[in-house]
Nucleic acid binder design. Structure first.
Lengths: 115, 115
DNA sequence: TTATCATTTCGTTATATGGCGAAACATAAT
DNA sequence: ATTATGTTTCGCCATATAACGAAATGATAA
């Protein structure tokens, strides 16, 4: 159906989801680390991640008590592959995404997440 | 701003706008011809066209008492160029878009638009 | 100039989306 | 087993979006 084809564009239609994808370009991240950078509620971030996952942009794996999210290395949808393969073309770096990436350097999962 | 980068994805997030783009792949069309195929209100189609135009996907030119819309041959945003240059990759043909295109063959602007 | 007609804009309505906190889940640590 | 903790789900609210018809606009035809 045609509505199905709009889904990957919808997934890319939210600034916070673009920030998440760009962050995951750097390294694998758990929900609470992303929450810390975006300054959103955990439930909101979780929802964003599920949308990105459902559209094949990211995948998850367990890591102790955390769940690591990372860029899908083998997307089913070739349009997703194409975007992820040239991510800086589709979502160019800017002050926000750059700041996000530097924020990540100073974040220690073990300190941040235990609140 | 990052929100700006989401705009072209938002523009592609509506099934009717995808149908319009695919129709314009065939030939230049006026508002009422598109209205006839999509079976939507004229005002609705006009709004969709303005969104596609504002994001550089299509351009317009006068043709008598009509306004012809067509695929932008020289988009400013290189992401738009990339999508329009491989349109069948990003929006593959299906039963709906194929039917739309055949519908267009039998539509005579001079008959349809004068109601 | 006046009438006609394609198109756009405006106001309204229904649905979709993104945000939150609380509660439910799932699993690791004690 | 029980507690603690990371994550998800649920219910709610505010805003965004897409739809319509009516009115406004603008340009062509009479």
């Amino acid at each position: 159906m045609l509505k199905e084809k709009t889904k990957i564009f919808k997934a890319l239609s939210d600034p916070n989801r673009l920030r998440i994808i760009k962050m995951l370009q750097t390294k694998k991240l758990c929900v609470c680390e992303i929450t810390e950078v975006l300054q959103l509620a955990t439930s909101t971030v979780s929802k964003h991640l599920s949308i990105l996952r459902d559209n094949g942009f990211i995948v998850e794996e367990k890591d102790g008590k955390w769940i690591n999210y990372y860029i899908n290395p083998t997307p089913f949808d070739e349009r997703v592959s194409s975007i992820l393969g040239s991510l800086d073309f589709w979502i160019s770096d800017d002050s926000v995404t750059n700041k996000d990436k530097t924020s990540l350097i100073n974040i220690d999962r073990k300190i941040i997440c235990c609140k």
